[in-house]
């Protein structure tokens, strides 16, 4: 059975534009969002110059996932309203949608469900920027996309192992890659200059006690990931619900009714068209 140490591939993964398996759209998006001092104008210009991309981004922003149905009509308006980082994240989201449709369809529903749950919980807790938490939910398993694309055989082995041995996909990843998708997601989100909060969520959504910068946001996405699986939405690599970290769960102070609300909103939003 194939096993590699993914940590020795970090440079290769960070140099994502050189990976032959990565589609052109993602390469172009990667090269713009990694810019050190990306301005509002630059990003808006980049998206607006590609009408297909612009319409996908606006479609996602106006979808039930973000809770602004039908209200945002231009990319610059979106950036003003949601901030540069959220639009960067949504831009990435639309391009990973394309990939997930091809390589692991259930991962898109998993990611969307997680984005919705994360936003609703962030709103309930009165966080100032629920859309940022939603983007963290949308992108939290981004590392899986790269692993599947570039190391398909090892990833297939991981999925099979998880199901057969009854272990979580991240445990199976440790067997086949020595590290998990959470680390891969962290490397990329650092490279793409995402805010520290998002990097924390990427790195620690399966080990939320280790989150230092954004323990609350990490706890939200950690629990959202579990709730989506509990409801049986999508497929994230294994068919099991992982146990919640009790400290993180207590941090959220959610009542039974709150959790029911999140389930209902997740379901309603996913019933609407989610093909971006």
């Amino acid at each position: 059975m194939a096993s590699i140490d993914i940590r020795t591939h970090r440079n290769k993964i960070e140099n994502i534009s050189a990976l032959p398996t990565v589609p052109g759209t993602l390469k172009r998006i990667s090269s713009i969002i990694e810019k050190p001092r990306l301005t509002l104008e630059e990003l808006s210009h980049f998206v607006s110059n590609d009408p297909a991309l612009a319409s996908r981004v606006l479609k996602m922003i106006n979808s039930a996932v973000y809770g602004f149905p039908g209200r945002i009509s231009s990319v610059s308006h979106a950036i003003m309203l949601l901030g540069l980082n959220v639009v960067k994240g949504i831009l990435l989201g639309t391009s990973i949608f394309e990939i997930m449709q091809k390589v692991m369809k259930g991962l898109w529903d998993h990611s969307l469900g997680c984005a919705i749950a994360s936003r609703v919980i962030a709103e309930k807790l009165g966080l100032k920027y629920p859309e940022e938490v939603s983007v963290a939910g949308l992108l939290h398993d981004l590392g899986k996309v790269i692993l599947i694309l570039e190391y398909q055989e090892n990833y297939d082995d991981s999925i099979r192992d998880a199901t057969e041995k009854g272990i979580a996909i991240s445990e199976a990843e440790k067997i086949h890659f020595q590290e998990t998708h959470a680390a891969v997601g962290m490397w990329l989100s650092q490279k793409w200059r995402f805010p520290a909060n998002l990097i924390d969520v990427m790195a620690f959504h399966h080990s939320p006690a280790a989150a230092k910068v954004a323990p609350l946001e990490t706890a939200i996405v950690h629990f959202s990931d579990i709730l989506v699986r509990a409801r049986g939405i999508g497929f994230a690599g294994d068919p099991f619900v992982p146990a919640v970290n009790p400290v993180s769960f207590e941090m959220l102070r959610l009542s039974d009714g709150d959790i029911r609300d999140v389930l209902a909103e997740m379901e309603d939003s996913l019933e609407q068209p989610t093909d971006f």
Partner: peptide, 22 residues
């Protein structure tokens, strides 16, 4: 089936009950 191995973990029984009611 999804909850089989975690039902006894803290809060997981409660979570399962909420999802089942839902």
């Amino acid at each position: 089936a999804r909850f089989l191995s975690v039902e006894k973990e803290p809060y997981m029984g409660r979570l399962k009950r909420i999802v089942r009611d839902y």
